[in-house]
Amino acid sequence: MKTEERRSLGNEEIKTIIMTAITGAAFGLLYGYGFEISLWLGTLIGALFGAAIGLRISKRPPRMEYPIALFHRIMLAATSLLLTSFGYSYLLDQNLSQTQQYWAAALPLAGWTVLIISIGWAIASLDEMQRRIQTEAIAIGFAGTAIFVGGYALFQFAGLSEVNLGLVLFAMSGFWLAGKLWTLWRYR
């Protein structure tokens, strides 16, 4: 039985490395395009970086609450988000008509949808207490982001530069992490 477990773990390790390498490559492609460096170089560096992370995860797995198959699915969803974002950036730089630009702008939404569905699956696969921890963390993340954006708007009226999406996403992740750490501490 132990031998079987080891063999299947070996397959999972390879899958993990491939998944993280693909996601890394998509990330590198997007960054390569965004920062106007070689697309091949960006993709290669991204893939190598992703594979290194995958190898690290396989060698010393972190304490994950999710089955590894779900981790792979989230990686695929993240890849689809990165590739649709790349497609969006690339297409907007072409000479498209206004209608075509609207269609291009809708591309990343498909990636976001796939990612959010995968995160939903991941949360649904947790047990009841872990699901509560995640739900509370998301609620804190949502409330914190709302306060942050509302507060920032007041400063914006006073002359601060316009809020950008990156800052909002950063605030959302930060508040979610703070919420998760707080609820983990509560149920420790």
Partner: peptide, 22 residues
């Protein structure tokens, strides 16, 4: 029970009350 060890610990220490099915 099909739950995490963390959940069992939280129930034992009274930090979390389980659902009726659990």
């Amino acid at each position: 029970l099909g739950v995490s060890r963390q959940t069992v610990n939280a129930i034992e220490t009274g930090k979390y009350d389980p659902s009726l099915p659990l």
